[in-house]
């Protein structure tokens, strides 16, 4: 009788430990998803701040590219003013394309590389573009880990009873993966 009791108590203790570990794991990935989401925001804001400075510095050198520069600024202002994802996703996508065109055209102006201010801002903007892509990638990786945990058995029993859900993926808009068209005039 005594041994039976101990065995039952032991099984209950192991079960409790498992529930605790699973719950903590779910909390960790949930917070990781939330943090990854904020990281994207930080990088997009940084891009909005950098673009006016860069355009200011290069506009004299790239005087033949006023149209492209104007498009970049317009796309930036639209993206910064966008309210809600429905407006913001196409606006940020358009901005990525405009910045890509600006970079492609800047290749034709070797004197920009010699300009310390311009090359520093170009590097800052280039790394911010990369960070936007990587933070989105990390967000999607985190979502995959979160959803794998929430949906697989037997952790889904715990996730269900404590209200953990699946997170939505950040879809890369179809146009963004295409190479930006270079406008040669």
């Amino acid at each position: 009788m005594d041994t039976g009791l101990y065995i039952v108590l032991g099984i209950i203790a192991v079960l409790l430990l498992w529930v605790m570990a699973t719950y903590n794991g779910l909390v960790r990935v949930k917070n990781q998803v939330a943090n990854a989401w904020r990281q994207i925001d930080v990088q997009l804001k940084r891009r909005h701040d950098l673009i006016p400075n860069l355009v200011e510095v290069v506009k004299d050198t790239m005087s033949y590219e006023q149209e492209t520069l104007r498009q970049v600024i317009e796309a930036r202002n639209r993206a910064a003013a966008a309210a809600g994802p429905a407006e913001a996703i196409p606006a940020e996508t358009a901005l990525t394309g405009a910045v890509g065109r600006l970079f492609a055209l800047a290749e034709n102006y070797p004197q920009l590389k010699a300009n310390e201010n311009a090359s520093r801002l170009m590097e800052e903007l280039a790394t911010t573009e990369n960070k936007i892509a990587f933070s989105r990638q990390f967000y999607n990786d985190s979502v995959m880990e979160n959803n794998n945990r929430v949906e697989s058995f037997p952790a889904n029993l715990i996730a269900g009873s404590f209200g953990f859900g699946v997170a939505p993926y950040f879809e890369v808009p179809a146009g963004e993966t295409a190479t930006p068209k270079v406008d040669l005039r």
Binding site: V33, D41, L44, P85, E92
Partner: peptide
């Protein structure tokens, strides 16, 4: 997790 938090937009 991401509800009502400042997001990318």
């Amino acid at each position: 997790a991401s509800g009502s938090q400042p997001g990318p937009w």
